[in-house]
Design a protein around this nucleic acid. Structure first.
Lengths: 219, 219, 219, 219
DNA sequence: AATGAATGAGCCTTCATTCAT
DNA sequence: AATGAATGAAGGCTCATTCAT
């Protein structure tokens, strides 16, 4: 009534309203992560979320079409954090040492380490989201962090000193990415501390490096 | 007479009953797989299962303690099929060629191939069960098929020609096993056909072989 | 603003909602008593209650944790009615006649009569609730009405004319209370009309008075 | 087939068959009591009973129309034990001392004590049965043990030395019987040990004696 | 924008009873 | 007489979602 659809007459009002809306959305998502962490997926119901967020169920449905959308948003958010972290680390290292100073193995180690440490804190929530997105449609999206390196390799960007450029096929890239993801997934399930052990990191780096080595263009 | 009630003196009487019972159980499990395949995990309710199996809910609970137990039985069954297949192939190849004639790479390929082809038919159901057990307590059990090779390697049983014996640490074994499992899982999700492509198999074999190579005791 | 979401600044908004909620709760309880009365405990299922109350099951669970809680609320309510009635009668009689003017036998008669008449209307429902609480944990609570007199006697508050004060031990108090409760329970079961017969009241008063007399401090 | 209905040709076979049948019935009931004692009423299902008894469900339904009938039989059995015990004690005491030598108070004490001690062992089962029959139709039957004395009194059989005969009305008898039953019931619920305490017995005896005293024919 | 009471299909499970063998 | 597989209505309860306010 005060707002028949399409008649947003006062533009000025909009901005703060939108700001508030964005904040509400953020609060809901934050509460969602907390709830997931504390109570697990089974207890993650819209009603409980509403209570945890301090809003009413209705409000939640004002910001999200349905429950799944919330989970998706959460997963996307986590993925972005991981992605940002990986690229940040990768580039910062590059800048410090100069692009050429970073060996292939070093790069691999950086990506792997970032991936392995991605689940510090809120482990439970992250595991759940990881699973969920693995299962769901957005699988592809969730892998992006690991894909960063694979993509670089696939595009032949990485030249490793005197040895030839590395070039991965789409299949190779997929295999590599999913292998790492699978390892992380399993470790998360079996024993989270495992992820932080140096010999674990070594093994993963070795796995990746071994594969890349095998794929190197034979000169 | 002295016969405690319930233990019929004539064993024959019990036989048909047990045969029928075994058949009913099998029918339920078969219906379960079918239901899982056709409608997915979310539609897999005890009532729907009963209907699909052509029994009443009560009957189902005569054979299984609860819903989870059905899923477990299914998963166990699938795993056993995979495990049997892997070992069978491994040993039959060994016999054909003579034990020593089977190179490490050959062995790897056999295990990998069996694993990749394990999900022909009923893919959806198998994927669901795979996921479920990955998540649940029986994780360890479900990996067994892939673990076969890893264990052989870990135990240093495989000697590859003139080159030294291969020996994997527990961590290495875990990483290797989970990498393969992760790849299969992902392919299953993304595009089941992928699993059958030769270059896919090659990539996985390469990954495994590369890792094993790196871990080989340098003579 | 600073308002934590969910706590409306205007208290008026909440009022109607709460009023409605209180009313719904009352409606459910009222339907529960009716159902109990008409169909008995065995027919008292949450689904049937929902139907009888004109709400859906879900709504019922919005107001009560579980089925037992409804029964408890009902029982508590009934007990409060009885308790209030007993004390009210006791005090009003006292005021009319002056405290000293009320003989021990008079007091006993008042308590007994209130107890015997407590189950007018909805007899079946009340019987069921009585039983239920007799059985359950709140046994102690449910006896309170009868305990009122016993407590007075136990505390030695009642002085009966020139004769000594009456004082009951804990055991005596228990025996007396439960004797009366047992009689009511049985009469309720056998023939509710019995409770209203004067000679029945006389017998119970005699029982109580006889016991108290026996326990009186011999001067 | 071997036995078309109505063709019990051999009479001699019948007797042992009936003996066996009686034994089976007894075995079922014994298992029922055990089950009730160990697992409580909620776990008392026909299937579980069958298992506990070592028969199949079908067999149980050959001996009892339905579940309730089993419970009834159990309750009746328990009552008979109590009844037998009370009368036995009463008469044995009478014989030892000569009828006149047993004072009214002594008789009361005997009946009360037998009643209070009736629930040794299998307390849980007995409490359940007590409750069940209290509730059910056979209420009347179950009270019989306590009624023995009341009946004697009601019939004016008891003369107490020089003082006049005691005579109770039907109402009096009911009140007395149920008072005792109520006390036992409550003690059973609250703390079974209570039933064995001497001061508890004293209080109950006092209650009964006090009432009887009051009802004595005033000479 | 926000509320939150209300919905109701659906879930898993139990158990008294029947009946073909 | 005994078996026990099969039945299926019914039970208590959950939760994503809607909609009048």
């Amino acid at each position: 009534m005060a707002n028949p659809p399409g008649s947003k007459s006062v533009a000025k009002r909009r901005a703060p309203a939108q700001a508030r809306a964005r904040q509400t959305r953020a609060l809901i998502l934050e509460a969602a992560i907390r709830l997931l962490e504390k109570r697990g997926l089974r207890a993650f119901s819209t009603n409980r979320l509403a209570e945890a967020a301090g809003f009413s169920v209705g409000t939640i449905y004002q910001y999200f079409e349905n429950k799944q959308e919330i989970l998706d948003a959460l997963a996307r958010h986590e993925r972005d954090r991981r992605l940002a972290r990986t690229t940040r680390t990768l580039t910062s290292h590059a800048q410090e040492t100069g692009t050429t100073g970073l060996s292939l193995r070093d790069r691999i180690r950086i990506v792997v380490r970032t991936e392995l440490h991605a689940f510090d804190g809120r482990q439970r929530a992250r595991k759940i989201l990881f699973d969920l997105s693995w299962r769901g449609q957005q699988h592809r999206d969730m892998d992006r962090p690991v894909t960063v390196l694979a993509d670089m390799l696939a595009a032949g960007q990485v030249v490793d000193g005197e040895r030839g450029a590395v070039r991965l096929s789409a299949t190779d890239s997929f295999v590599l990415t999913q292998a790492v993801a699978g390892i992380v997934r399993a470790a998360l399930e079996r024993d989270e501390q495992m992820l932080l052990a140096p010999e674990f990191e070594d093994a993963v780096v070795e796995l990746v490096a071994g594969f890349v080595e095998a794929r190197r263009c034979k000169p």
